[in-house]
Computed example of a mutant assay.
Amino acid sequence: MFRFKSLQDLPDALRGSVVAIGNFDGVHRGHQSVLETALGFARDHDCPALVLTFEPHPRQLFQPDVPLFRITPAHMKADILRALGFDGVIEIPFTREFASHTADEFVDRVLVGGLAARQVVTGFDFHFGKNRQGGPAFLMEAGETRGFHVTLVDAFRDGEAEVVSSSRVRDRLHAGDLAGANELLGYRYRVEADIVRGKQLGRTLGYPTANMALPENAALRHGIYAVRFFRPDGASYDGVASFGRRPTVDENGVALLETYVFGLDQEIYGETCTVAVCAFLRGEEKFDSLEALTVQMKKDEAEARAILSALEPLGHLDRKLTF
């Protein structure tokens, strides 16, 4: 097991670990600075490394009427954390009851009683407990009195000295700045969903597609993308994808991610597949005819093939996830 839904599920072999704490939505470069620090301590002490996070995201409990686009839903976040080198992730159920615990209760019940944490690593602005009463100073003092070390990691900034954050990633995805979003993430943005049946118009045009329904509040801009497509068995393929409502043929349709997968010629309906979104090609357009659409699709395919053939990893994490 890698994902644990309660402290009671955690095996004894993973107690006494270095623990990184945070929501880590997106597991972007800012999060990675915290996570890599924790992994470094675990290597130094020759002990396991765990991530402690919360499900659902606390904002969904406190602001249920405000839609929150999750960059990395829990299962995808766990996959990325595994790729980084962690030994497990504990997904604490974030309920009203849990949110009512005091900061002392969180330390005693979770960090000490549940995890027997050896070292805690978190961001410099981490707050916890009822009404956010526990802060960095509180956590460090609690560690001194309860026998665990605390390391606080400063905010990670990009080349323009701006703090890397999940909200910035969402904003760039929404604006169609995929390159900017991927740079903040440190890997190619990924989505995962079951393959569903569409109207199969692509087959008649010579471009059969693998279709995915993304969350309604997905931040990805509608348009055409060069992508890398992964099946559950790990097989990977290059492709070109359209995300949007297909204005040429079905203007009022549900938004779908439709991927023409190069070299894949078999039925995969029902499979849960992953798409790494590598490059933004153009915005969604409405064409005057299916013939004009097909001509553009051929151009999109050629451009995607050229981009993907020259693709280079953004870093070690991207190499593991995308290549």
Rank of each mutant, 00 (worst) to 15 (best):
A161K: 15
A161I: 10
A161D: 15
A161Q: 15
E162Q: 15
E162H: 14
V164R: 03
V164M: 04
V164I: 14
V164Y: 02
S165A: 06
S166L: 02
S166R: 01
S166N: 04
S166K: 01
S167F: 04
R168Q: 14
R168M: 12
V169G: 05
R170Q: 02
R170N: 00
D171K: 15
D171G: 11
R172E: 11
R172D: 07
L173W: 00
L173F: 01
H174E: 14
H174N: 13
G176W: 01
G176I: 03
D177C: 07
D177G: 08
D177A: 09
L178I: 08
L178Q: 08
A179T: 15
A179V: 15
G180Y: 10
A181R: 05
A181K: 04
N182R: 12
N182S: 08
E183W: 13
E183Y: 13
E183I: 10
L184V: 02
L185D: 05
L185G: 07
L185E: 08
L185P: 06
G186N: 01
G186P: 06
G186L: 09
G186E: 04
Y187W: 11
Y187F: 14
R188W: 12
R188S: 15
Y189S: 08
Y189D: 03
Y189T: 02
R190A: 14
V191S: 01
V191W: 01
V191H: 02
E192P: 06
A193R: 10
A193W: 08
D194L: 13
D194S: 13
I195F: 07
I195G: 08
V196F: 12
R197F: 09
R197I: 08
R197H: 14
R197G: 13
G198S: 08
G198W: 12
G198K: 10
Q200I: 06
Q200K: 15
Q200M: 13
L201W: 03
L201S: 06
L201I: 13
G202Q: 08
G202R: 03
G202V: 06
R203I: 06
T204W: 05
L205D: 01
G206Q: 03
G206Y: 06
G206T: 02
Y207M: 11
Y207P: 07
Y207F: 15
P208C: 05
P208S: 04
P208M: 04
T209E: 10
A210I: 12
N211P: 13
N211M: 09
M212S: 10
M212Y: 06
M212E: 10
A213I: 15
L214G: 00
L214E: 02
L214N: 02
L214I: 01
P215H: 00
P215W: 00
P215D: 00
E216S: 12
E216A: 13
E216N: 08
N217M: 00
N217A: 01
A218R: 04
A219Y: 00
L220R: 00
R221T: 13
